[in-house]
Amino acid sequence: MYQANEQRYQKMFYNRVGDSGLKLSAIGLGLWNNFGSVDAYATQKAIVHQAFDLGITYFDLANNYGPEPGSAETNFGKMLATDLKPYRDELVIASKAGYVMWPGPYGNWGSRKSIIASADQSLRRTGLDYFDIFYSHRADPQTNPEETALALDQLVRSGKALYVGLSNYSGAQIKVMAGIFRDLHTPFIIDQPRYNLLNRQIETDVLPELTAEKKAAVSFSSLCQGLLTNKYLHGIPADSRAMKATIPFLHPAQVEQTLGTIKRLNDVAANRNQSLAQMALAWNLRQPAIASVLIGASRPEQVVANVAALAHLDFSAAELQTIDDILAAQAPIDWSAKD
Rank of each mutant, 00 (worst) to 15 (best):
N5D: 15
Q7E: 14
M12S: 13
D19Y: 00
A26Y: 06
I27P: 07
N34G: 03
F35V: 01
D39S: 14
Y41R: 12
K45W: 08
V48S: 06
F52Y: 14
L54N: 08
I56S: 10
I56T: 12
D60Q: 07
G70W: 06
L80T: 05
L84T: 03
R88I: 04
L91G: 10
G98I: 09
Y99A: 06
Y99L: 09
Y106D: 15
I116S: 07
I116E: 09
D120A: 07
S122E: 07
L123Y: 02
L128V: 00
D132W: 06
D132G: 01
D132Y: 07
S136D: 11
H137N: 03
A139G: 03
D140M: 02
Q142L: 12
E146W: 05
E147Y: 10
A149E: 08
L150Y: 05
L152Y: 02
D153Y: 06
L155D: 02
S158V: 09
G165Y: 13
S170D: 05
G171W: 01
A172C: 05
A172Y: 13
I174T: 00
T186G: 02
P187Q: 09
I190D: 10
Q192T: 03
P193D: 11
R200N: 04
R200P: 04
I202E: 12
E203T: 10
E203Y: 10
T204Q: 14
A212G: 09
K214V: 00
K214P: 02
L223G: 00
C224K: 01
N230V: 04
N230H: 13
G235S: 12
G235I: 13
H251T: 10
Q257I: 02
T258Q: 15
K263F: 03
R264S: 13
N271H: 14
Q274A: 12
M279D: 13
A282C: 12
W283D: 11
R286E: 11
V293R: 04
L294C: 06
I295W: 08
A305M: 11
H312T: 13
D314N: 13
F315L: 07
S316D: 11
A318H: 08
E319S: 05
E319D: 14
Q321G: 01
Q330S: 11
Q330G: 02
A337I: 04
